[in-house]
């Protein structure tokens, strides 16, 4: 068949028209079943950057901190190992000289020297753990929380090496036998994954503040750093606060009034 320039252009034109018609037909045809969708819960607490202030003036001894640690371990199925090398920590106590090694000196006042400091994941502004994770199992959420997706964790432990605060623990053993009472509403972890504090992401989703804050009797103040009217911003405005290892530039979101 002879096909000149004109007939080629005609066919090309018709084909282009056909392509344009398809989306129209699809729209007309998709009348019946609605597509399933997903959404946030109605009561969800949202923020630009969640943060926490620890008011150590309201803390006298370990007994004041224990309820906060206990409730976290309980609801998140954090196991208790006798062997310190297998320890799993989400929120724990640290001496001043270990929590703030660069601010420690030999003439520290007695209160601070012996005071237990509450430590947890700092949910950093520039988290080193997120940068090193090869599977993006650790990522930063829109609300500033540095979260782990356990479904992607391959247990390489780069994040543990990267974190300057020791906020991450590795499951050297199956944790289940070491959980006193399993909370079936929240998954446990398994041998071979890393874990850490999730700032109670599962509670924020249903309108509840983190459990440690709830039982802290006002020693912990939780809120959005981006909201200048918030209680946490008011607290930061009117009190001198320090953060752990600030020179590293990670930008921790946990502040301490000493």
């Amino acid at each position: 068949m002879e096909s000149g320039r004109r007939s080629f252009l005609k066919i090309a034109g018709l084909s282009a028209l056909g392509l344009g018609v398809r989306p129209v037909i699809e729209v007309l045809a998709s009348g019946e079943a609605a597509k399933p969708t997903v959404m946030k819960g109605e009561n969800i607490l949202t923020a630009k950057r969640w943060a926490l202030v620890v008011d150590t003036r309201k803390i006298e001894s370990e007994e004041d901190l224990e309820p906060m640690i206990e409730i976290c371990d309980k609801i998140h199925n954090v196991p208790k190992f006798e062997n310190k090398r297998h320890e799993i920590k989400w929120i724990w106590m640290e001496e001043f000289k270990h929590a703030f090694p660069t601010q420690e000196h030999e003439f520290l006042d007695e209160r601070v020297e012996h005071l237990p400091f509450l430590t947890l994941c700092n949910h950093c502004e520039k988290p080193a753990c997120v940068r090193v994770c090869p599977t993006k199992a650790t990522f930063k959420r829109q609300d500033g929380i540095v979260l782990m997706d356990f479904h992607r964790c391959i247990g390489c432990r780069f994040c543990m090496a990267a974190c300057p605060y020791g906020s991450r623990s590795f499951n050297f053993r199956d944790p289940r036998p070491f959980i006193k009472e399993i909370n079936s509403k929240f998954p446990t972890r398994m041998k071979g994954v890393v874990e850490k504090c999730n700032f109670c992401a599962e509670r924020l989703a249903v309108g509840k503040i983190p459990a440690c804050v709830e039982v802290s009797n006002g020693a912990l103040i939780f809120g959005d750093l981006d909201d200048s009217e918030s209680e946490i911003r008011e607290t930061l405005r009117t009190n001198y606060t320090i953060r752990r290892k600030p020179a590293l530039g990670a930008g921790p979101s946990i502040f301490y009034i000493v």
Binding site: P36, T37, V38, M39, K40, G41, I44, F139, R141, Q142, D143, L147, D149, F150, H151, A201, A205, V206
Partner: peptide, 10 residues
């Protein structure tokens, strides 16, 4: 986990 959306509408 990743999008913080927990409600499914079928």
């Amino acid at each position: 986990v990743r999008d913080a959306k927990r409600i499914y509408v079928n």
